[in-house]
């Protein structure tokens, strides 16, 4: 591992001041320390932001949430107001990693974790995300767990977070602090597709610090469903975050996002459009899933993700529909 300086920030302003060229913010370190050990991340300085006072989940009067970036994944998933008002978020967090990792991992770090594409994680291999212009061996090589939607010639990586998929469905926004002040970025504008710059997972500017996530109230049943290669402690092949409201047999509200299929959490707007006002039946759910997945461009070894995503969308919506 390359030697690095270490500074612990007590406030967001101090963190911003300590951030210099080559520095990286440290949360729980569960992904960053591993990438440093692999030689994939080589920061000259770590600015530790895990002890910043952004460590609470606040329930707003309208039922929305403000989640501090330093809240651990465990505390987020255990929070009563999250479990009761936004169960899809608690379920998504619990579907990720292990109990040990969730105790260390922070919300900010979870958002900013890097892809687990095996080429990205191997410093000896070409990878346009790690080393722009070096190539993407995944297109022809090992890609059974990589993207089917929105990928580019240069990058077919998937975003690994479960939590971010739930946040995408929940219309969450990310509070970001920079030297010029604070901005609030809708999650859909926070993450990006690989087009043009596969090395950039997000629209964060250098040195900007994630301080919190804002989640509006939900008010309808929600659920997170994840398919993986073993029953626990594995990344998603495909996951679905969904919320559904049905009145008189008709879909009156729906939120749908997919994980494990793209460079970013994939908000399934086409499916949502197809569902709003439609009969809450298996047939409509299937039609909506197919509308979303029409855009899929699977690679040689990951075409299985298309029917997997379709079936998981239908099943999750059926489960939610039965509960209403």
């Amino acid at each position: 591992m390359r030697p690095f300086g270490y500074e612990r920030a007590a406030t967001a302003d101090e963190a911003l001041a300590l951030h210099e060229d080559g520095a990286v913010y440290l949360g729980g370190g569960t992904n960053l320390v591993d990438l440093m050990r692999l030689g994939v991340a080589t920061p000259s300085r770590l600015v530790d932001v895990a002890r910043l006072p952004h460590d609470r989940v606040e329930l707003e009067v309208d039922g929305g949430l403000v989640i501090g970036a330093a809240v651990t994944n465990s505390d987020l998933a255990a929070d009563r107001s999250v479990r009761e008002g936004h169960p899809v978020l608690a379920e998504a967090v619990l579907a990720g990693a292990s109990g040990q990792i969730r105790n260390l991992a922070t919300v900010g770090g979870n958002l900013l974790q890097r892809t687990r594409c095996s080429y990205f994680q191997d410093a000896a291999k070409p990878c346009n995300k790690r080393d722009p212009g070096s190539g993407c061996p995944a297109r022809e090589g090992e890609h059974h767990n990589l993207a089917i939607l929105g990928q580019s010639e240069a990058c077919v990586a998937t975003h690994p977070s479960d939590m971010a998929v739930a946040l995408a469905a929940l219309d969450a926004s990310v509070r970001v602090r920079g030297r010029s002040g604070e901005r609030v970025v809708p999650l859909e504008d926070f993450y990006r597709l690989p087009d043009g710059a596969p090395d950039r997972d997000t629209t964060l500017e250098p040195g900007e610090l994630v301080t919190a996530v804002e989640v509006p109230p939900l008010g309808m049943p929600s659920r997170y469903r994840k398919v993986r290669e073993r029953a626990s402690f594995a990344f998603a092949l495909v996951s679905v975050a969904a919320a559904l409201e049905v009145g008189n047999g008709v879909v009156t509200g729906v939120r749908l996002a997919l994980g494990g299929v793209a460079h970013r959490p994939w908000r399934a707007r086409r499916a949502e459009d197809a569902l709003r006002g439609a009969a809450a039946t298996e047939e409509s759910f299937l039609r909506a899933a197919e509308a979303e997945l029409e855009a899929a461009e699977p690679l040689r070894d990951n075409a299985y993700k298309v029917p997997l995503a379709r079936n998981l969308i239908v099943r999750t919506l059926m489960e939610l529909g039965e509960g209403t």
Partner: peptide
Amino acid sequence: LDGRRANACLALAVA
């Protein structure tokens, strides 16, 4: 670690 289980391999001592 402070009463909670954690992977000691991923925890930097300095942090």
